[in-house]
Amino acid sequence: MTEQNAQNRNIADRLNTPLHSAVFSWPTLLLVVAIGLFILNVFASPYFLSPWALSDATFNFTEKAIIAFAMALLIISGEIDLSVAAIIALSSTMMGLALQFGVGTPTLVLIGTLTGLACGVFNGLLVTGLGLPSIVITIGTMSFFRGISFMILGDKAFNGYPESFAFFGQGYVWWVISFEFVLFIIIALAYYILLHRTNFGRHVFAIGNNPVAAQFSGVRVARVKFLLFCLVGLMSGIAAVLLTSRLGSTRPSIAQGWELEVITMVVLGGVAILGGSGTIQGVFVAAFVMGLISFGLGLLNVPGIVMSIFIGALLIVVIALPILTNMLKERRL
């Protein structure tokens, strides 16, 4: 017992230098992994290095990453939303439904994003308004939202989106730079500023570390969490617009299983699943890592389900490694 106490009192002479902490931070490590994967891909397939192939590769992750940024904030605050994929299905279905009434592209986009926002508000009200655990509530809304999609569509599909609508998921802003990629960069920057440069971001960390202490320091815990649920819903709505535009059709099974991929991306990005810590840079790089893995394996003709083994193993290994190295270090002391 005394030995342990002595260890706890052992305070370092000085904190790590900024350079040291930047080099050994999680995003940097991930970046090394990403570059390694990139080089592996170059050797694995001769088709990989063409600009168009690289541009295609970004479509694998941009839509998921857009949700992942908002999800990162939500998870840092200690909550979780498992209903994001179902929100995509519902938003997409609402757009398809509106299409039957012959509305134009701007209205379609508006309906898609607003449906997402409305779903986020619904989740937020249930979790913060009634004080219910988010993990079960969003399991419920997950079947509820997608269930409404099934009620409306059954085994049918909505097709025939206008040509101008196709720009969001298939259009290019300049040469090989797609609209989706540009939007992904803009949203990444916005979330970086929101989380790391504003009071709101500090509140998110404070809530994740200790909600009671945050409440007593004047942070409106329920309101911040509610806003985070709205943001996740809104981002899912935007992702629904992009995905629907890219696929050109809506089925109720659209984006099935995405909630797990989005959460994997967030956790891989170094966000603590129990809340309190994480960075947008980490999630940003994690998006590339996941995109590179699935695109590289795709070029090698590895089936999607085998890819999921890699993603699942990556999730566990990436979280286990720092804990294991810590355990080894402590044993050495």
């Binding site: 993990i135 797990l260 959460i263 994997t264 956790v267 699943i273 129990l274 089936p303 389900i305 085998v306 890819m307 999921s308 083994i309 993603i311 699942g312 193993a313 999730l315 566990i316 979280i319 286990a320 804990i323 294991l324 355990m327």
Partner: peptide
């Protein structure tokens, strides 16, 4: 994974959810 390494159960089982199903294919 949960007992020895101390990874939260939701993360471990989220990972094994996809790993185990991938193995069926293999």
């Amino acid at each position: 994974m949960i007992w020895w390494i101390g990874i939260p159960s939701i993360v471990v089982t989220l990972g094994t959810l996809t790993i185990y199903r991938g193995f069926i294919f293999l």
